[in-house]
Design a protein around this nucleic acid. Structure first.
Lengths: 158, 158
DNA sequence: CCATATAGACAACGTCGTTGTCCATCTTAA
DNA sequence: TTAAGATGGACAACGACGTTGTCTATATGG
């Protein structure tokens, strides 16, 4: 068995949060340098949730775990920043399809590249095998779809 | 080297966030069952930041990375819930020292125990050695004091 | 002794979430 | 075909929680 005493249980969640923030902060620092300075931390998740085929406010709200009104407001902001645009659905006049603009696609592609670069950095620090073991552990401990981020409600709370 | 292709870089941060939320949600579910149903996710961090010796609004704001006014409002809420109380400082009439009440201390002790229990669960799932390697990795990748959580400002943003 | 710094309270405001309501449109069943 | 319900979206009102700005009381230092 391990001879060292186990660390207190509260360290692990704090490290998880700190590691998450470290990655996201680094991502947005780089994005800002590459021409996307006005993005908020959660916007990357929104882009991923919109996806390449576009979506609607209601569907986006479901994926993000927030109300359709909140999703609509988020879309308003992103539309003003030029990252998404609203179009009509010829098959259903009620729906207004939200799609990424060229600028939005550019940002999404840069995000993916930067995430990969950051993972490469981490791999160099820890060693690829150790990093994979870490990822495997996290998958075991926190299984499920990581995309349902109802963090706004979760963190801000009602 | 590893023969499997590396996972996309964006999976790691999502897993980190998901794992963090999994722990904190479980903590508050248990706390609610043990007589502390009205605590918000971040309140545990606030208790830790207050500490056993008490603190002031300004100092709490510094530790949490928020304004003294925001810290004051948080204290107001916790005071109404009966978790903290304000006293005077005989050495400095300006300061109003915030201390945990018996209820606050009880909650803090239960949190520490629950965190340890959750870590034990994780250790049983992953194996103690694997869990320690995970913790070691996180310390390497996200070093520093995990206690400066300016998450409110970070997440909500101005 | 007076100028400056600090602690705390109060007010105004912005952001972002919520619920409630209303309308247009699609779908389903009589 | 038409009437009833379901669904997508917009508008308004509200609440939680952060911010900055201002004001007073108290310490501190030249």
């Amino acid at each position: 068995m391990s001879s060292e005493p186990a660390p207190p249980g509260f360290e692990l969640p704090l490290r998880l949060l700190l590691a998450f923030r470290t990655i996201i902060d680094e991502l947005h620092e780089r994005l800002a340098r590459e021409g996307h300075p006005d993005l908020r931390p959660m916007h990357g998740f929104v882009f991923q949730a919109i996806g390449p085929h576009g979506t609607t406010a209601v569907e986006l709200g479901r994926r993000l775990g927030v109300s359709k009104q909140a999703a609509g407001k988020t879309i308003d902001g992103l539309e003003q920043l030029g990252y998404v645009e609203r179009g009509t659905d010829p098959a259903d006049a009620r729906r207004k399809v939200v799609r990424l603009t060229a600028r939005g696609v550019d940002c999404l592609a840069r995000s993916a590249r930067i995430f990969d670069e950051l993972r490469t950095q981490w791999s160099a620090t820890l060693g690829e095998d150790h990093l994979r073991q870490l990822e495997t552990g996290l998958r075991l401990l926190a299984p499920g779809d990581p995309f349902r981020l109802d963090t706004p409600r979760w963190f801000g709370g009602p």
